[in-house]
């Protein structure tokens, strides 16, 4: 098997995650889909590291994880704050950015 299959899987997961972001309204699930996309990227990085025979791809994946962790912390805090004021976790309820 060619390791490029990992890349196909990564693309597939990324696309599924992207579609989830677009389709779901629950902010938490949207957020999970974002995490899914990040993980798909990580898979691609790790696979590239293997394909090219150096560890830089893994380093980038590592940094991605760190950033994802930070993002999750802040993002979930925002969701909690939003829920407190609106009693809703739907992204469609935050629709003031319009004319």
């Amino acid at each position: 098997m060619n390791p490029i299959n990992y890349l196909y899987l990564s693309a597939l997961l990324f696309t599924i995650g992207g579609a989830g972001v677009l389709v779901r309204r629950n902010a938490i699930i949207v957020f999970m889909c974002v995490e899914l996309m990040l993980n798909a990227c990580n898979l691609a990085f790790v696979t590239f590291a293997r394909l090219h025979g150096n560890l830089d791809g893994q380093i980038i994946a590592f940094f991605t994880m760190v950033v994802a962790a930070a993002e999750v912390v802040v993002g979930l805090a925002i969701i909690v704050t939003f829920f407190r004021s609106r009693h809703s976790a739907s992204v469609d309820d935050a629709s003031l950015m319009k004319l």
């Binding site: 898979l43 293997r50 893994q58 994946a61 994880m65």
Partner: peptide
């Protein structure tokens, strides 16, 4: 899959 791809550290961290 990370482990399979030789990223042992990342696999565990994941």
């Amino acid at each position: 899959f990370y482990l399979a791809n030789g990223a042992y550290f990342l696999g565990v961290v994941q």
